[in-house]
Nucleic acid binder design. Structure first.
Lengths: 197, 197
DNA sequence: TTGTAAAAATGACCGCGGTCAATAAAAGAG
DNA sequence: CTCTTTTATTGACCGCGGTCATTTTTACAA
């Protein structure tokens, strides 16, 4: 008979996440070292890896959490009324991911995970994002603001593709460059969703 | 007075690449360990890192080389006559990259590098691929087989985006799945290049 | 040939993510 | 309160990529 996870364990997990978040706050994602996390949380290294599969597993929770918060912001803005407004809704997400390559790499690694364990926050985030995009695209199609010759699911996945493409390029160049990801995304979405004439 | 790189050094570099390629042949890219490479090449570890910036730098040469060979194949096929034929030309590339996540990750890291040092094989490969795609798209536009309302450069970059998207998803799922990347790419390219009516 | 400065190669060493057999702490059973 | 079983934690240890002060080799001048 398997038992439910005990209270003490949950507290440890919470403390690990809390300390990790604090370090990220101070040093950024790239500055996060497992040894620092466990030191601050006052546990041994092995403990961390009994709570999270690996360092990425820990990051996935932190980042997934943030993605969910960004989604709240997106939804709060209400349904966009055209392609340009949709781009604007995506801007915060791009800004967040664009701030550190670690975020990008991790999201990319999980971005295709449509199935999988629902307790993984990051997966939940993706499912919600795709669902939200699809819903919005349906509305835009109904309003005749974007093309209607393709199913909204395909268009949504296409948007994901352009999002990642733009970010990938962003991380390859020196950032003195003045074009932020959100701005670079525009021409792609305009072309991809081009309004029905 | 700086001197040109000496013969002996070039031989060492060549031997390192040769041995690395052999190991990849046997164990795949994921199985490549720096220690094995230097052991086979009969040099110390530090030597490898004086020839290549890091492990990725070594892989970049190996993979970039392979990408160039694939490009030869693409060009040998001649210019495609419609979107479907273009997809077919890209299939070998997808098959190659899809065989190991290491290849994908590395190509993605370099994929935005449009400028940079021309002696990097992998950069050369990308420039050539983009140029080739652009040229083909121009021809297809001229022939009226694809949309003409967007510059071929934008369409080419879009294709890159879909390529990476499809591959990203591919690596996220169990590979018992029967849909290979090339097949998954089709609907995107059809939609993205949708023929002028 | 010999002296010397640049180039090339060396390998001990480090950082850091991740493992695992051993140990401690909790949770019932009697 | 014991004894036993499950759960949670520990920290020494490992693998592997990457560094750097030191040593060896090479090229060239006197």
């Amino acid at each position: 008979m398997t038992r439910a996870p005990q209270k003490r364990r949950l507290e440890t997990r919470a403390r690990l996440l809390e300390m990790a978040a604090a370090i990220v706050q101070e040093q950024g994602y790239s500055g996060l070292r497992v040894e620092d996390v466990v030191a601050r949380a006052g546990v041994a290294k092995g403990t961390l890896f009994s709570h999270f599969k690996d360092k990425d597993g820990l990051l996935a929770v932190l980042i997934g959490d943030e993605v969910l918060r960004l989604l709240d912001g997106m939804e709060a803005g209400g349904a966009p009324r055209d392609a340009a407004e949709l781009t604007a809704r995506l801007a915060p997400h791009l800004d967040y991911v664009g701030q550190d390559r670690v975020i990008f790499d991790l999201l990319l690694r999980y971005s295709g995970t449509t199935a999988a364990e629902p307790d993984e926050v990051i997966t939940a985030g993706f499912l919600r994002q795709v669902a939200l995009l699809t819903r919005w695209l349906q509305l835009l199609q109904a309003a005749g603001r974007i093309r209607r010759d393709q199913p909204p699911e395909l268009l949504a996945e296409g948007i994901q593709a352009f999002l990642n493409h733009v970010l990938g390029v962003w991380f390859c160049m020196e950032h003195d460059d003045e074009t932020p990801p959100a701005r670079a995304l525009e021409p792609y979405l305009q072309a991809w969703l081009q309004p029905a004439t």
